[in-house]
């Protein structure tokens, strides 16, 4: 047990935590923006997978990790455009369309990977130009803060994305309109705002962020692509959005929490006999509990709504 505690308190644990949390944070921000616009994006998972695949392939092909990174973003945007197209224009249910996008990403990436490598399951034989780790000299010398140094550009971008999401949602005209549409579409309509345009953009942004998140998995944390390597992180990001009550900072903390438990379960697995699964389960149970609480809140909110609606009749 002591071992565990020392392990947790060590700088390398923090380092691991940041690395593990990076894709979660990015995807959660993407999910948050889509959700705030009223279009719940269940396809985060597939978008990340697509990003991971594209990043690896283009990084390997061009031997330039930057190109891999940019193409990951592009692929996330393209795939999310498909979701937006089907949901907003062809009026497909967004949950089912999101599920389809997830499946599509799974099928497409493994199919193409086989085409490219001739081997199933993983990206054997593709030599990847991995993203360089960025060392921050000031932090490196400090005993604790050194774990904040030496991460990939994506990790730093993920932290920036939290600030960016906050500023975007609360400080820009577009963010305001986005929130108004998600909060009450008729408010947007009454003010002459195009709901579809707003949701298009929100979905595309979430696609871009997920593409970035995927790139972290394939060309930074590891240097390979494995079929289905996102392993539910997209859904976890969605849960973080919920756990954080749709507020950027809290969603960030929610994602960090999931990351922490993920890292913890690794530590426990290595160092103790304690079943890591039970640690891994904690965030899901927490999300369930949050869901119950939010369920109640939305009921109360509904009551307020009826108050407003019925008020006219009295």
């Amino acid at each position: 047990m002591e071992q565990v505690i020392t392990a947790i308190l060590s700088a390398s644990f923090i380092y691991t935590l940041i690395r593990i949390s990076t894709p979660l944070i990015l995807a959660a921000m993407g999910g948050l923006i889509a959700d705030q616009s009223g279009a719940i994006n269940i396809a985060l998972e597939g978008l990340m997978l697509m990003g991971a695949f594209t990043a690896l392939v283009f990084s390997g092909w061009s031997q330039n990790s930057t190109i891999g990174l940019l193409m990951a973003i592009v692929s996330g945007i393209l795939l999310s455009a498909l979701l937006a197209l089907f949901h907003l224009h062809l009026k497909a249910d967004i949950i089912l369309a999101g599920i389809a996008i997830n499946i599509l990403a799974l099928g497409l990436t493994s199919f193409l990977m086989f085409l490219i490598t001739g081997i199933k399951g993983y990206s054997s034989g593709i030599a990847v130009d991995a993203l360089p780790n960025i060392n921050i000299p000031i932090l490196q010398s400090a005993p604790f803060f050194k774990s904040f140094s030496g991460h990939s550009i994506i990790s730093y971008l993920s932290l920036l994305s939290v600030v960016g999401t906050y500023l975007f949602l609360y400080k820009t005209v577009f963010g305001l309109r986005l929130r108004s549409v998600g909060s009450n579409p008729s408010a947007g309509l009454a003010s002459g705002i195009s709901v579809i345009k707003i949701q298009w953009l929100a979905i595309l942004i979430s696609g871009a962020l997920c593409g970035l998140a995927g790139a972290q998995l394939s060309i930074s944390t590891t240097k390979l692509f494995v079929t289905g390597m996102v392993q539910g992180r997209g859904f976890i990001a969605l849960a973080a959005v919920l756990l954080g009550g749709r507020k950027p900072l809290r969603v960030f903390l929610g994602a960090l929490l999931f990351g922490t438990f993920d890292a913890l379960s690794n530590t426990f697995q290595v160092l103790t006999n304690f079943p890591s699964q039970f640690i891994y389960i904690i965030p899901y149970v927490a999300t369930l509990i949050a869901l119950v609480i939010y369920g109640q809140q939305s009921r109360k909110a509904r009551q307020q709504a009826s108050q407003a609606a019925e008020a006219q009749d009295i």
Binding site: F86, K91, A97, L106
Partner: peptide
């Protein structure tokens, strides 16, 4: 799997 996804998309429309 790709076919499955496309069929779902097609059917949801």
């Amino acid at each position: 799997i790709v076919v499955q996804a496309i069929m779902i998309l097609f059917l949801t429309v």
